[in-house]
Design a binder for these strands. Sequence first.
DNA 1: GCCAGTCAAGTCCCG
DNA 2: CGGGACTTGACTGGC
Length: 321
Amino acid sequence: MTVVRLGYVAMSMNLQNCSPSQTMTFAQFSKIKDREAAIAKLEKIAKSNLQNCLRLLRHNEANDIKFFRFSSKLIPLANHDELHDWKYMNNLEDPLMDIAEFIADHPMRVGFHPDHFVVLNSQQPDIFKMSLKTLRMHELLLKGMNVNPEHRCVLHIGGAYDNKEKALEQFIHNWGLIPVSIQRMLMLENDDTTFHVNDALYLCEKLGVPQIFDYHHHLAYYEDLNWEPHWKRILNTWKNSSLPVKMHISSPKSEKEFRAHADYIDVEMFMEFLNTVKGETKELDCMIEAKQKDNALFQLVHDLKRYSEIEWIDKASFHIN
DNA sequence: GCCAGTCAAGTCCCG
DNA sequence: CGGGACTTGACTGGC
């Protein structure tokens, strides 16, 4: 028997004016003559983004959704070079504490997936340093929310730079340069163009990092299409984590645009996957990556209702036997 | 109010 | 070596 929880990403299609990713471009920032006023505006946006996160969490709670990925664009320009003296966390204690209190009252799994500008296997010191700075911001946000940062940030492995073997070894080399608290925060995901399941396993096993299995990426790029023999190893990368195994679920937009995400999740593909893993997997948190966000989750729940092997625990989690 | 173009960041591909 | 595509939601500017 497997307990499955469904989650979704960053924003809701059902809440009005609730973006957690409002922003200001650097060009816009520069146009404001009074630098202090410009920074105040950035802080106002960040605060509003966090308040919208809390609205999202309340919405999730109301729908039994206990698994959520925060936007990584909560603090606009946080890592911009020209703003290195800005203490972006300074005025965020209150909105972060509100989130902390809500999570304390309503236990749920939250995390991040910093975007593709975080590249840990880069040989360029500036890119590596900027990546660490971005990860440090994620760590501070988690701490502000009173969430243990362990295994809360999913990353891709990075670039191939014309030599994948070397790029993997570079990742291991750079790993040694990452502060331990940030190492502990990370999980690694197979991607759809460069580093497949076996590459991710190589690193995850070597470095003791949990692996996120992205089924859709796997179908787009693999060494062996047959992933089942590797599932035990993937589960095993989670053995030292206090959190359940986590994976990503999405469906191709079309045959032609296979890599792009569809609006919704193909329920048959999802069921086929679950039926394959249910024997050896006790708990599985499935992050739905679909254009229709929470609506894709609701639709998937609706589509799953016709399968008799599923027993519902609440509106967004179930047993499968 | 709507639509097209732009936006911090990286990598890859093409010429 | 330089420029554009990739991908993304939000925002700006033009109408």
